[in-house]
Simulated assay, not measured.
Amino acid sequence: MRRLTPYAFLSVPLLFLIVFTYIPVANMFWYSVTDWDGLSPTKEFVGPANYVEIFTRPELFGVLKVSLYYVAGSVVQILLALYFAAVLSFSTWFRNVYKGFIFFPYLINGVAIGMIFLFFFQPGGTLDSALGAVGLGGASQQWLGDPAVVNYSLAGTSVWRYLGLNFVLFLGAIQSIPPHLYEAAELDGAGRWAQFRWIILPGIRPVVGLSFILAVSGSLSVFEIPFIMTGGANESETFVIQTVNMAFKYYKFGLASAMAVVLLVIILIVTWLQRRIAPDEKVTLS
């Protein structure tokens, strides 16, 4: 009976995983080879026709360039999270308050964040008022209406929202490093920068690698922030927004499912390449 206890506890989450993950993914693969409109009770099998259409229509892949803004934002986000985590891992005035401020945005619903920054970036909104207050009113512009700057605005919003997640991951990893290593380094005359370079960074390398993988995959599949704030207008449409529009606006569920499969494959390939280029190395700190 004791041998069956672990399986009994695992049965419920495994059932949810099958019902809400594996079955929908299997259905997605099936829909991707049909010409289903999402309404008809019948699904006409068309084979690889949807995939052929995807790879013969360059505009469907052209929106992937928008993801580059989010990739760049993710790099900035990881660097900032690493900096704050390293600084606040040491004794600092009001560090718990700072931790709360940094992590709090991650707790806010994505729709709420989109609405907040929609007012933040609107003409005459919070950002323009702040620029005018410091004498930079001339820098005001159409932050969400100009194709040249809209993706910078959206990527900046994403950085603000997800900074807290990486910060907590890095802070937890740093705090798991044995304290006596810092003491030994201080006795040897090592400053904060030397401690960060030779103790902290090697000690949290696997977590940093994981954060980069999550950041890149998230950048390729970004959806809610641009969808809420611009709806994909002004050259801010992402691959996921295009996929959703293909399904629910043009009623081409088969083609949309094929696009989702292609995005899944792209993310898997990018993740595999990241693991090959920068594999995790076991670091022993003692």
Results as ranks from 00 to 15, higher is better:
residue 208 V to N: 07
residue 202 P to L: 08
residue 55 F to V: 11
residue 234 N to M: 07
residue 220 L to D: 00
residue 88 L to Q: 00
residue 111 V to W: 02
residue 37 D to N: 15
residue 100 G to D: 10
residue 259 M to R: 15
residue 49 A to R: 11
residue 270 V to C: 10
residue 229 M to G: 06
residue 118 L to E: 04
residue 204 I to L: 09
residue 237 E to L: 12
residue 253 F to I: 06
residue 71 V to F: 04
residue 121 F to A: 01
residue 144 L to F: 03
residue 116 I to F: 07
residue 7 Y to A: 14
residue 84 F to Q: 04
residue 256 A to P: 03
residue 67 S to K: 01
residue 266 I to F: 13
residue 45 F to Y: 14
residue 274 Q to I: 15
residue 163 L to M: 07
residue 158 S to V: 09
residue 269 I to M: 07
residue 182 Y to Q: 08
residue 175 Q to T: 11
residue 182 Y to N: 07
residue 82 L to H: 01
residue 9 F to M: 12
residue 231 G to S: 05
residue 37 D to P: 00
residue 25 V to K: 00
residue 157 T to F: 02
residue 21 T to R: 12
residue 237 E to A: 14
residue 33 V to T: 15
residue 182 Y to A: 05
residue 59 E to L: 03
residue 193 W to N: 04
residue 251 Y to N: 06
residue 60 L to D: 08
residue 195 Q to C: 11
residue 5 T to E: 11
residue 240 V to Y: 00
residue 129 S to L: 09
residue 233 A to Y: 09
residue 8 A to I: 15
residue 203 G to E: 02
residue 240 V to D: 01
residue 78 I to W: 00
residue 156 G to C: 02
residue 222 V to W: 01
residue 20 F to C: 07
residue 114 G to E: 06
residue 205 R to E: 13
residue 110 G to F: 04
residue 114 G to Q: 10
residue 102 I to M: 03
residue 231 G to T: 14
residue 152 Y to Q: 06
residue 190 A to H: 06
residue 214 L to P: 02
residue 60 L to Y: 14
residue 127 L to G: 01
residue 53 E to S: 13
residue 170 F to N: 01
residue 188 D to H: 07
residue 259 M to L: 14
residue 40 S to D: 08
residue 117 F to Q: 00
residue 105 P to K: 14
residue 70 Y to K: 00
residue 120 F to N: 02
residue 38 G to Q: 05
residue 7 Y to W: 10
residue 96 N to Y: 08
residue 104 F to W: 12
residue 68 L to F: 12
residue 184 A to G: 05
residue 154 L to Y: 06
residue 277 I to K: 08
residue 138 G to N: 08
residue 114 G to T: 08
residue 32 S to Y: 01
residue 5 T to C: 05
residue 177 I to D: 11
residue 206 P to A: 10
residue 241 I to A: 03
residue 170 F to E: 04
residue 2 R to C: 07
residue 133 A to I: 06
residue 95 R to S: 12
residue 31 Y to M: 12
residue 45 F to G: 06
residue 256 A to V: 02
residue 130 A to C: 03
residue 106 Y to C: 05
residue 77 Q to E: 14
residue 252 K to T: 00
residue 281 E to D: 12
residue 150 V to I: 12
residue 61 F to D: 03
residue 249 K to H: 12
residue 118 L to G: 04
residue 194 A to P: 00
residue 269 I to R: 06
residue 219 S to N: 03
residue 286 S to F: 10
residue 24 P to G: 04
residue 227 F to T: 04
residue 69 Y to S: 04
residue 10 L to E: 08
residue 203 G to V: 09
residue 207 V to I: 12
residue 205 R to K: 13
residue 20 F to N: 14
residue 282 K to I: 15
residue 134 V to Q: 04
residue 98 Y to N: 08
residue 52 V to Q: 09
residue 19 V to H: 10
residue 165 L to Q: 04
residue 73 G to N: 02
residue 201 L to R: 13
residue 42 T to L: 12
residue 42 T to K: 15
residue 130 A to S: 04
residue 220 L to W: 01
residue 58 P to E: 13
residue 41 P to F: 09
residue 107 L to F: 14
residue 29 F to P: 04
residue 64 L to Y: 14
residue 170 F to C: 10
residue 56 T to W: 10
residue 167 F to K: 01
residue 249 K to S: 15
residue 269 I to N: 07
residue 167 F to T: 00
residue 200 I to E: 07
residue 11 S to P: 01
residue 139 A to G: 00
residue 196 F to I: 03
residue 192 R to G: 11
residue 213 I to M: 10
residue 14 L to Q: 05
residue 165 L to I: 13
residue 39 L to E: 06
residue 2 R to F: 09
